[in-house]
Structure formats: structure tokens, C-alpha cells
Design a protein around this nucleic acid. Sequence first.
DNA 1: TACAGTTTTGTATCGGTTACAATTTAATTA
DNA 2: TAATTAAATTGTAACCGATACAAAACTGTA
Lengths: 137, 137
Amino acid sequence: MQNIEYLKQYLINHEIKPSTIRLNVLDYLLKNRIHPTADDIYEAVAKNIPTLSKTSIYNTIDLFLEKGIIQALDTGEKEHRFDIEVSTHGHFLCRNCNKIFDFNIDSIEYDQSKLDDFLIEERKVLFKGICENCQDS
Amino acid sequence: MQNIEYLKQYLINHEIKPSTIRLNVLDYLLKNRIHPTADDIYEAVAKNIPTLSKTSIYNTIDLFLEKGIIQALDTGEKEHRFDIEVSTHGHFLCRNCNKIFDFNIDSIEYDQSKLDDFLIEERKVLFKGICENCQDS
DNA sequence: TACAGTTTTGTATCGGTTACAATTTAATTA
DNA sequence: TAATTAAATTGTAACCGATACAAAACTGTA
């Protein structure tokens, strides 16, 4: 875990008090942009913190969501997945290898009259299919 | 349940053998476009078929998904929801009343270079926020 | 050192979904 | 029509990601 000061400041800037678990989770998320599940995070962080409990991971995730430094992805898989990149962007889920690929979205053109006076807080775009790699094999 | 012949043909056209349960589920979905959960469907259809089991609803849903006459929505709520409208369109989930509103999508402009040679099979767009009605109160 | 507040842990439980064998129903053949 | 096979339906148990909650451990402050 490098740049502890950077990680601490990252949390503090988002009104999260640093703790060993939170720093480890943040470090993992920043370095492993694979849209991991709670269990992925748990398995990775538990290597550094042998006493770690699953509940602490869920607590940390809930806190990070609340403070807006991660977003949850609902892909139809049974586990939630999480993304340290919170800007609006598209996700492509390969239904063969289950990897998620990011892509930029420039605009969505839709019938706004249907959503007149609706307060839109989140825009999620999920494509599903087969990634390039899985088509070759 | 009106138009039994229409419902039968609807199923047959999609390679689904009609049965009482399947006809009832289809009828419910066509008449109640509220993006119901499996339990919503179960509760409604059980009124007509008292011996109905939850498993039969899951079986029917799986079959309908497989044959492509419904699509699943993953909204972050813990239950899946289902939509008899399978064309690509947007969904708005109100995080206050949990109603889902449909809207048309004309186009999504995105960085296609990231998805070069990807086979895109599904495009899902989900907005979340507060619907007009829930803002008034 | 004592105290209060926060963080973390461990256990039990929840609830939507799935697995699967048994039963019932429908379709096919003799 | 009865017998046989296949398909649909049911009921029970179990799975598993997530949650609730109280106890324990830790942190910061005076």
C-alpha cells in the first residue's frame, strides 16, 4: 500500500475518517479497477488484515456509497459489483467471462417529455454481450 | 382473462406451449405494465390458481426470458423485476415510490472504439431519481 | 487513566432464488 | 380405452449475498 497520505486525504476529502480497513479497501479499489464484488474486496483485503470480517467490508462499502466515492453496479449477476469511478460512463458486461469494460458516453438522446419535472439523479447504461476476447475462442 | 385464443397464439408464436399458468402469467403481464416482481406475479395469478406454487412462477419466468418475450430489470432493489416490453427503451426508477417509468431512447452516443469487435446483445438504460408525483409531496 | 464515541467483529437471521425429487397432468402410442 | 412416455407443476429444503444487532476492540480527548 503506497501513498498512505494520499489515501488518507482522499478519504478525509470525502468526509470519511481513515481507518486501516477503509484505507485498504480504497487502495484495493484504486489499484484493481475490475468492478469487484464485496467478496472480491474481502478476499483481497483479508490478506493484509487476517482478522477482517465480512461485515466490515459491507459496512465500508455502505459508507463509501453514502459518501459517494463508489457506485454500485447491478448487472443481473447475483452479487453487486462496485466501481471507484463514479462519473457517468457506460459498462459492458461480457456474459461469457463476466468481465466489465468501461466506455465513455457522450450523450443519451431520449424522449424527455416523458420525464418532465422528474429529478434525475443517476444515469446508468449497461450493455451486455460477448467481448472481443471471448469471441475469438 | 379475455382473448384466450390471442394469448395462446402469442405463446405458440414464441415456441411456448400454452398452459393455464403460462396463459395467466402472460395475461397478467400484458394487462399490468408495472414491471412486477416474481412475487407480484405470484400473488396476482394465485388468485385464479389457488394451488399455484412459487416455483412454477420462477419456471415460467425463466421460460419467458429464454424465449425472449420478457426482459429482466436489475434496478438495485433486491428483487428482479420483469417487463413484457422487450424493445430497447429506458427505465426511470423513482427511489421514493419505487415505480418504474418507461421512456423512449432515440440514440446513445458513446465511444465505440472501446467496444470494437464486441458483440452487443442488450442495451439497458436506467435512470434513478424522484418522479414528478413524489416531488410534489 | 478514565471515559465516550467510533469501529470492528461474530453470530444469527432474512429473503429472493434455486435445486431437485415427487406428484400430477398432458400427449403419444399400442 | 388403457398403457406408456413426456412434460408441467408442486413442495420442501437449501443456497447465498446481504443485513441486523449486540458484544468486543479500538481511538481520541481530557
